[in-house]
Design a protein around this nucleic acid. Structure first.
Lengths: 247, 247
DNA sequence: TAGTGGTCTAGACCACCGG
DNA sequence: CGGTGGTCTAGACCACTAC
């Protein structure tokens, strides 16, 4: 039954329960609309307090996998649209979740001084060092997006030492520099493709594109990067799951 | 000092604390980057347990108003981009949050039988009754978006009795029929404006538009509506706040 | 009435950080 | 060292739902 939790693990108990339930749901062992074990049942089954079981269910609800009805129970959500949940991942992971093979072509990697606008977005002073990174992003070998990043240079002074065609920026920041993303603000708009980016994307200048501007914050509240991504409108749609903030 | 909570209110204690803190932050009484009272301090100040104070801070973090650092404290977030948090609100409330005056022009309100696609999106059977609602949405009197809704008819059989030019659909569903939204899936893409909608929006056919498809779920997990909104790209940008799901 | 989720208590230990 | 947030306990009462 593999019901036991590892109480010595560095993974919190609620996260272990969450993980088990997530697997059961994603494998289809619990059908959409069918009930998930109640808080009290989970608590008894795994030998934890009800508050701990509750935390697992709350996280699943936040991800949109279940919905909860007072007085009735917790049920597997019946999703109607394709959802890749878009949980604060980079291009590399985003493409993988969509079943596509990501790759990159490095266009530019240069240390610059922050302009007024970039400084503002990153919460640093004008003139401070930033890395400016531009990459063409491909999915299964064809152009998907054109991405322009600005990263405060002091966060990662050796960024130009890495192979940013093959490596993931987020992986470098997280695994090599211990910088973890915690949240992000995103602004999405439709626009006409500028000539230069259109050429890289193999589309006609003026074609509609989806422009995503994202500022990512680390767990110390500092802005980690400001990135503008221009997606081909015919190849990319952004998906989100929204919840009422009664957490 | 107005520190007291109303323990007889139907508003939970954590929500009352959350509300007070939110006000203080939005009024600028606590500067960006400055610390918010700690969990233990809030607990003592308001005479609640630490778990209750914690729940208030967790909700504020989910909304992106604060960030938390283990071993240090909780701080007011330094936001870099304009954020209207887009917390599962309708057009009416969205515009108000942006400081614009919303209005509507009713184009169509008709009871129809669900097509395969609509039935699929709403999780009902093909041929079941749905209301089809189309409205031109204005902000400060100028066209902002063209919206096409489908709502299961059994949720609100008298929908055609309301004045949907002046009333908010979400208000009717919530206040008149007790149907509360709980979550939604959204898919955003850029496209060219179709001729018909372009005319309503006063833009040229083929101009770029932002297309938002949203399926809203109620607190019983049922789909409440499926809506496609075509926004003028030059007037509208969608904003989101994303958080790592470590709630 | 029995079961559910929502809220709340009054503690506890831990890892982490600053001085 | 004291303070912070992160986790966890073992209860409790409530509103709500279904039977």
């Amino acid at each position: 039954m593999e019901k036991a939790l590892d109480r010595n693990s560095y993974i919190p108990l609620y996260a272990q329960i969450q993980q088990k339930l997530r697997q059961m749901i994603e494998r289809g062992e619990i059908a959409p609309g069918a009930p998930v074990p109640s808080e009290r049942e989970l608590a008894e089954r795994y030998g934890v307090s009800r508050m701990t079981a509750r935390q697992a269910l709350r996280a699943l609800r936040h991800d949109g996998l279940v919905y909860r009805e007072r007085g009735i129970g917790t049920f597997v959500a019946r999703r109607k649209v394709d959802v890749h949940t878009r949980n604060l991942v980079g291009f590399t992971e985003d493409m993988r979740q969509r079943g596509l093979k990501p790759s990159s072509k490095l266009i530019l990697l240069k240390r610059e001084k922050a302009t007024q606008q970039i400084a503002n977005e990153l919460g640093i002073e004008v003139g401070e060092g930033v890395f400016h990174l531009e990459r063409l992003r491909l999915a299964n070998g064809t152009p998907m997006a054109y991405e322009s990043n600005y990263i405060p240079a002091d966060l990662c002074p050796d960024l130009d030492q890495y192979d940013l065609e093959r490596d993931s920026l987020y992986r470098i920041l997280e695994e090599e520099h211990g910088i973890r993303m915690q949240s992000a603000d995103e602004v999405l708009e439709a626009a006409r493709a500028p000539r230069r980016e259109a050429r890289y994307l193999s589309i006609r200048a003026g074609s509609p594109v989806l422009v995503v501007h994202r500022v990512v914050y680390g767990d110390n509240g500092r802005a980690i990067e400001s990135v503008r991504t221009i997606y081909r409108a015919d190849r990319y749609r952004a998906t989100f799951h929204l919840t009422k903030n009664t957490l």
